[in-house]
């Protein structure tokens, strides 16, 4: 085809990716808004390896070209992710939008990416010369800057099979559908023997990339609920102090106030 390649296998796709100046195309929902002229697309939607969801001992593995609609209907996908997917735009966008595309677009407003941050997801990046497994946090180098080589494709997103059950997710958009996140929050708490063994609190749409303050998260780790309650004020004020938001269409003051309240709602949900 003119200005495009539609490979049937991943190997074929990687060969084209290595040899040509192509833009990987999964769902098109972001790319076609830009509608750059003279661009050559590498269409990924017909590649079976990228279209499947599989589960191994530890991970739910979602192919980069799996659409949000497909994942939403798959009960193997963690519920926190499906909550986020349900809030993305509207059916026609979810029918096209993909996990790989949401990552590849590099926006900090991508709702699936927020959950990937909260779950410490890993990405499997592949090229003709092999593959790399990269934590999602390291994949984002800065605003619209990704650790993706020009011969690589995102193949899979690896989400933990368990450990996400205690979660709080909320998206705040400008209306009830067809809304880009103004703030989105995903928090996960893992308890063992009445103690918090892991906590993540991720904020979307507030900075150049999804934000997590690892030091602050650590303030509650190792604590019982009662101890966490006692440390709550310091925990929240740490976020108040350290959460730095970039300017946007919607004021930073507003978004920050919402971030702090959602963080509080997350704690409240688990009795903290």
């Amino acid at each position: 085809m003119v200005n495009g390649f539609a490979p049937a296998t991943l190997q074929e796709a990687l060969a084209i990716r290595a040899a040509q100046d192509v833009t990987p195309y999964a769902g098109g929902t972001d790319l076609m808004v830009e509608n750059r002229r003279g661009v050559s697309y590498l269409f990924l939607s017909k590649i079976p390896e990228l279209r499947q969801i599989t589960v191994d001992d530890t991970c739910v593995r979602i192919g980069a070209a799996v659409t949000f609609t497909e994942a939403l209907a798959d009960e193997r996908v963690p519920q926190i992710m499906r909550d986020a997917l349900a809030g993305i735009a509207a059916p026609a966008i979810r029918n096209a939008g993909t996990f790989g595309g949401n990552l590849g677009n590099g926006s900090a407003k991508a709702d699936s990416v927020l959950v990937e941050f909260a779950l410490d997801a890993k990405l499997r990046l592949v090229s003709l010369s092999g593959e790399r497994i990269v934590p999602v946090e390291q994949f984002y180098l800065g605003r619209k800057k990704l650790d993706l080589h020009s011969d690589e494709l995102i193949a899979e997103i690896l989400l933990p099979k368990t450990g996400w059950e205690n979660y709080y997710y909320e998206k705040v958009g400008g209306r009830n559908a067809l809304a880009i996140s103004r703030v989105a929050f995903a928090g996960v708490l893992r308890m063992e023997n009445d103690r918090i063994v892991d906590l993540s609190a991720a904020f979307g749409a507030v900075a150049d990339t999804v934000l997590r303050l690892k030091d602050a998260e650590g303030m509650l780790i190792g604590k019982t609920v009662a101890e966490a309650k006692a440390a709550k004020e310091a925990f929240l004020s740490r976020y108040e102090q350290d959460l730095t938001l970039t300017r946007g269409r919607v004021s930073a003051e507003y978004r920050k106030a919402v971030c702090l309240r959602l963080l509080q709602a997350f704690l409240e949900k688990f009795g903290i």
Binding site: A90, R175, N176, L178, A179
Partner: peptide
């Protein structure tokens, strides 16, 4: 005018 697109100028949807 800053809100010059449908993603910035929001009108009610069927869900609102």
């Amino acid at each position: 005018i800053r809100s010059n697109s449908f993603s910035d100028y929001l009108i009610p949807t069927a869900a609102d």
